[in-house]
């Protein structure tokens, strides 16, 4: 008879972390946002490596606590480390999460490589799908978003900054 593994595996920890919503955008979780970089489990202790989205993001504190809480619920001790390198990029947000952002009403971030193009691709209105939109303000309700207005349906909307 094979005895059960004494501690939850790293896969089990990843699965638990996928249950943590982003505090500011609850339709996506912290794993698919690319915030959790690494999970290691050793002798009843999980070491989670996370990277901040924006340096001044007030949600970081909450995210860190949620990570610790989720790990402890599996019966493991938790250590959460923060790394700055490589710096977080919106390119790490999973394709599924980008689709969910759009359905939620937030234009998903464009590929970061786009920023160096002379004429970056237009931002699509998440409400009506029009590409005739205007950036009104680089800054929005949270550090990660900008404010746009759609020239077709005339509704304002938020778009994720590409960083």
């Amino acid at each position: 008879m094979v005895s059960p593994a004494p501690w939850p595996s790293a896969e089990a920890v990843w699965a638990a972390l996928e249950g943590i919503p982003d505090p500011e955008i609850p339709v996506v979780n912290v794993v698919e946002m690319g915030i959790v970089r690494e999970v290691q489990v050793h002798e009843g202790r999980a070491t989670i490596t996370m990277t901040p989205t924006f340096s001044g993001c007030p949600a970081l504190h909450t995210i860190r606590e949620s990570l610790e809480h989720a790990v402890r619920k599996l019966g493991l001790e938790a250590e959460v480390r923060t790394v700055l390198s490589p710096p977080w990029s919106t390119d790490w947000i999973s394709p599924e999460a980008k689709q969910r952002l759009e359905r939620y009403g937030i234009a998903p971030p464009k590929p970061v490589g786009d920023l160096i193009q002379l004429e970056p691709s237009p931002t699509r209105c998440p409400r009506c799908g029009s590409l005739d939109t205007t950036l009104k303000n680089s800054f929005g309700s949270t550090l990660c978003k900008s404010i746009y207005v759609c020239n077709t349906c005339h509704e304002p909307f938020e778009g994720f900054k590409a960083v």
Binding site: S55, G56, C57, K136, N137, F139, S141, I147
Partner: peptide, 20 residues
């Protein structure tokens, strides 16, 4: 309003940088 928000964002970023 939009500028109020923009500058609050900038202030928050700078605070994050101070903390870094």
């Amino acid at each position: 309003l939009e500028e109020d928000i923009a500058l609050a964002n900038i202030a928050q970023d700078e605070l994050g940088h101070a903390s870094t």
